[in-house]
Design a protein around this nucleic acid. Structure first.
Length: 931
RNA sequence: GGGCGAUUAGCUCAGUUGGUUAGAGCGCUGUCUUGACAUGGCAGAGGUCACUAGUUCAAAUCUAGUAUCGCCCA
């Protein structure tokens, strides 16, 4: 083995071997354990959030696979309607073509071509990360069988009256020219303006003033509303106003919606271009007036001088005209919330179109019940509040999109615009007895991507085809075990899956939903291209040069003027680029940071720390392998194990229990921490060091049983630890395991096929011996360094005082103490030793002296002992305070009181020892001080 | 405005049903190249647990309020 751990080379080696061996496929044996991958966008590349969540999923899958569960990790990607069209359109434009050159069918061909050539970037990247998914079952939402599920769902929902088509206000992206869902709208706080406009009364008796942030929409106003209780305007209700610039007369109505405190208490109502106004208009029987074309230019419903103007030009023109007519009263800055499309970044228009909707009352009720009843559980549990709030305020779901790429809506129209819904045109014709003479045209729109993702749980398991369902294990794997995802798609996807799978199968899609935090940069900022703080997980695995990183962060930006600042910040933060940490270190970092309910500030220093940890593991393995040889080691007989081997095995068993408990609560952070501490602080720092004396040639000759037991324990602990670590760091554990499996006597081809370790009962006797030994060694080491005693030079140790138990342990472990504390020999103290030439070390009741060659610096030793004394006094004080409190003694549980009593004894003892020692030194000090 | 969360060492975070002198990693200080590892060893410094009040024999932990920050919804 190399002296240092080199992730790059070894990680390349293992993945394809695993995949080829088929060990990621469900075994079909044991209790099923299934995880659905939230299908990433086919145009996407792996970002930190994916890498994080995939790591958690993979850790769980590998863990459960090793525990004998029948694991299925269902992976795949979704077809991402808008995003994919944008990518392919850009590709066409880069070739000098135009999207308009393409007919629908040809464009879709291009999309498929693109999909086959470059649509699997993210799945390749998932393999780099070590994702142990069953790739043979990978699905794409546009696959024929998944498409069949989509059509079937649409048709059935329509038959049940849960899907309807109708004119409604939707969020319209005038650039992409499609409807988008509420969830795809980002509300951004922006500085805008608000205008006060005078609407004259038709009877010439004054006017009313309305305030608006969108003056151009007055062209579509149908009325002005006031609050029914507003005394100021009581006589105005029912009167008519002259709508400026249009020559139209509009009435004043009364409606509760109006807030009399806001502005003048008069509100213009534009049902065609505002969601709230739509409601008001509907209540009062007004037909909405749509003044925009699909690209948000003014249409023919408006006066001629505005037609054809873009919405922003129209605003300028309207304001100018109002000024001219003396109807503009005021213009002032106004903080407002602007709705923007999350894909295009453009301001979204509430826009009146015919769209398809899914009714949400019945489905929403079902979705709520499935969670309220506990069939689906959120982890952490408080996410149920978010879910509940949304489910109780559901709007009907707009599922149609004015795109080409996606599942085409299975609805046909005849020349009279009668709608026929069915699985195919043929089915429609048969069912409705439509002869060949009747021309049918299919609806041009497609379903939004989330409609197909909502079916992910049951459609990937073969639904609705009974044969496929049997083959895929529908009954076996549904409900799946746990869904791991971010809070941001609870509504987009989680809720919709619960509703759809629940409605069509009567089952929940998953039993638990683990909601992860968000990965932020080391300063707590959200990662985004425009901030230039994005980290690419692949760069953390492979490393990246500074210049390349700067290029990556500043190329193809939406706002190129930020490039300079981003380049500068990047050069400051990563002066040497990013080193290669390897996939394992990245995975370990993610799991170590994965606490509950918290966002994660991703710090490269943590990643480096865990890379170092893996290097430590690597070297512990090197040491072990150097000492255990190539052959299978004989298993020591019962009773042949030395105390320290029993100790490390006991600690190992406790670690197994800790990891099991942590993982059952999804506390990945606690699981990895237990492993980190065990490997570094117990196995490496102590057991390895303690094994060295036993393995020395002379010692081994003298005590071959202990040497044998030690060798076997080294191999056994290392092998078991590798299995415990494997779900988190699959590559390095496989690499090392292949070398240690023979000495450890384990039969399997790959660590991923081994079984998860079972914890045995701990060994308290061995643990207490080892703790004593560690305390003694640490006390001696502290004394030596604090007094600047030559660290390398062997020194004698004198035992001044100790309990019979101490003396017995000294007898048993003397050789080890000598070795670890670098002592020449250990012997009882006697009168020959002048305390002035000794340093003191305390471990429990054991009082030890380290005689020094020359004069000890008495002042320094006094200071050191004083410090210890202070510490002990403080401890005693707090204990005494408690025990002095009658109510504490009376009320606290007996074991707590007893514990305090024991502690009091220990403190008193230490204080007595230290005080005596200090007294003697002071005495010496005085006699040594030249007068 | 409503809801959720956070505030613990210089930084990033643990801290379970209240019960040692509140822990870890990184960073920092000192020291050591000893045959696993300098991506390291050994030793050490560093905290008024945001603030206030309350409950309790006992509060980082429970309750109420305050402050600051973040997210979601309107």
């Amino acid at each position: 083995m190399d002296k240092t751990y080199n992730p790059h080379e070894l990680e390349q080696r293992w993945y394809s071997r695993w995949e080829q061996s088929g060990c990621f496929m469900p075994s079909g044996q044991g209790e099923p354990y299934c995880i659905l991958l939230p299908p990433p966008n086919v145009t996407g590349t792996l970002h930190m959030g994916h890498a994080f969540q995939h790591t958690l999923m993979d850790a769980l899958i590998r863990y459960q696979r090793m525990r004998g569960r029948d694991t299925l990790w269902q992976v795949g990607v979704d077809h991402a309607g808008i995003a994919t069209e944008m990518v392919v359109t850009r590709q066409i434009e880069a070739e000098g073509g135009k999207r308009d050159d393409y007919a629908r069918a040809d464009f879709i061909d291009r999309v498929w071509q693109w999909k086959h050539e470059s649509g699997s970037t993210i799945t390749r990247q998932m393999r780099r990360l070590g994702a142990s998914a069953d790739w043979s079952r990978e699905r794409f939402t546009m696959d024929p069988d998944l498409s069949e599920a989509v059509i079937e769902t649409f048709v059935r929902l329509h038959e049940e009256g849960l899907i309807y088509r109708g004119p409604r206000l939707v969020n319209w992206d005038p650039v992409l020219q499609t409807a988008i869902s509420d969830l795809e709208v980002v509300n951004s706080d922006e500085q805008g303006k608000i205008w006060s406009i005078r609407y004259p009364r038709s009877d010439g008796r004054g006017d009313v003033v309305v305030a608006t942030t969108r003056p151009e929409t007055l062209l579509g106003d149908v009325c002005v509303a006031v609050h029914p209780d507003d005394a100021r305007y009581r006589d105005l209700v029912g009167q008519s106003l002259e709508l400026p610039l249009t020559g139209r007369q509009i009435p004043v109505i009364a409606d509760d919606y109006v807030d009399p405190e806001f502005g003048t208490g008069c509100v213009k109502i534009t049902p065609g271009h505002d969601f709230n106004d739509w409601e008001v208009g509907a209540r009062h029987g007004f037909a909405p007036i749509n003044i925009f074309t699909p690209t948000a230019t003014i249409n023919d419903r408006a006066p001629a001088r505005y037609r054809g103007l873009d919405r922003f030009e129209a605003r300028e023109r309207v304001i100018a005209d109002l000024k001219t007519e003396g109807l503009l009263i005021e213009e002032k800055p106004h903080a407002m919330v602007v709705p923007r499309g999350d894909r295009s970044g453009q301001i979204v228009e509430p826009y009146l179109t015919n769209q398809w909707f899914v009714k949400m009352d019945q489905l929403g009720q079902l979705g709520l019940e499935m969670v309220e009843s506990g069939q689906v559980e959120f982890v952490p549990g408080n996410w149920i509040n978010t879910y509940r709030h949304w489910m109780e305020n559901l709007q009907d779901w707009c599922i149609s999109r004015q795109l080409w790429w996606g599942h085409r809506i299975p609805a046909w129209y005849d020349d009279d615009n009668n709608i026929y819904v069915g699985r195919s045109e043929d089915e429609v014709r048969v069912r409705h007895q439509l002869g060949d003479d009747i021309v049918l045209r299919q609806d041009a729109d497609v379903l939004e991507t989330w409609f197909s993702s909502a079916l992910w749980a049951h459609s990937t398991l073969g639904w609705p085809d009974p044969e496929r369902m049997a083959a895929e294990g529908f009954d076996r794997y549904l409900p799946t075990s746990v869904l791991i995802t971010g809070f941001d798609i609870i509504f987009f996807w989680v809720a919709r899956m619960i509703m759809m799978t629940g409605h069509f199968t009567g089952k929940v899609p998953f039993e638990q939903v683990y909601i992860t935090g968000l990965i932020r940069d080391s300063h707590g900022q959200k990662m985004s291209k425009s901030k230039g703080n994005v980290l690419d997980p692949i760069d953390l695995i492979d490393g990246i040069e500074l210049d390349q990183l700067v290029d990556k962060r500043t190329s193809s930006m939406m706002q190129p003027h930020l490039a300079k600042r981003i380049a500068k910040a990047t050069r400051e933060e990563y002066p040497d680029g990013i080193p290669a940490f390897g996939a394992d270190a990245l995975r370990f970092t993610f799991t170590a940071l994965a606490g509950h309910g918290r966002d994660i500030k991703f710090d490269l220093a943590r990643c480096a720390g865990y890379r170092n940890f893996l290097n430590k593991l690597w070297n512990a393995a090197r040491f072990t392998l150097m000492n255990v040889g190539d052959a299978t080691l004989p298993v020591p007989a019962e009773g042949e194990l030395d105390t320290l081997s029993r100790w490390i095995l006991s600690r190992l068993d406790r670690t197994i229990t800790e990891v099991d408990e942590a993982l059952s609560d999804y506390r990945f952070d606690l699981a990895t921490r237990a492993l980190y501490e065990f490997v570094w602080n117990e196995f490496c720092d102590w057991y390895l060091e303690l094994s060295k004396p036993a393995l020395q040639e002379q010692a081994a000759a003298r005590d071959p049983a202990t040497a044998r037991a030690t060798r076997h324990t080294l191999a056994r602990v290392l092998e078991t630890t590798l299995r415990l670590l494997h779900p988190f760091v699959p590559f390095i554990t496989e690499e090392i395991w292949q070398r240690v499996r023979v000495p450890a006597g384990v039969e399997a081809d790959s660590i991923s096929q081994t079984r998860w370790p079972q914890a045995a009962a701990p060994d308290p006797q061995a643990e207490s011996d080892a703790e004593w030994l560690k305390a003694v060694v640490s006390a001696i080491r502290s004394a030596r360094t604090e007094l600047n005693l030559a660290p390398g030079k062997p020194m004698p140790l004198l035992i001044e005082e100790g309990s019979p138990a101490d003396l017995a342990r000294l007898e048993r472990f003397g050789d080890l103490i000598r070795s670890l504390a670098r002592l020449a020999h250990i012997e009882p103290a006697d009168d020959r030793h002048d305390p002035a030439t000794c340093a003191t070390a305390l471990a429990g009741e054991l009082r030890m002296l380290i005689p020094l060659a020359g004069l000890v610096d008495v002042t320094e030793e006094l200071a050191r002992l004083d410090k210890q004394l202070e510490r002990e006094k403080k401890g005693l004080e707090s204990v005494a305070r408690k025990l002095g409190n009658e109510r504490f003694v009376a009320n606290a549980p007996a074991d707590v009181v007893e514990k305090e009593r024991v502690r009091r004894g220990e403190h008193e003892n230490a204080i007595a020892d230290l005080t005596e020692r200090i007294e003697r030194l002071r005495h010496v000090d005085a006699s040594h001080t030249p007068s």
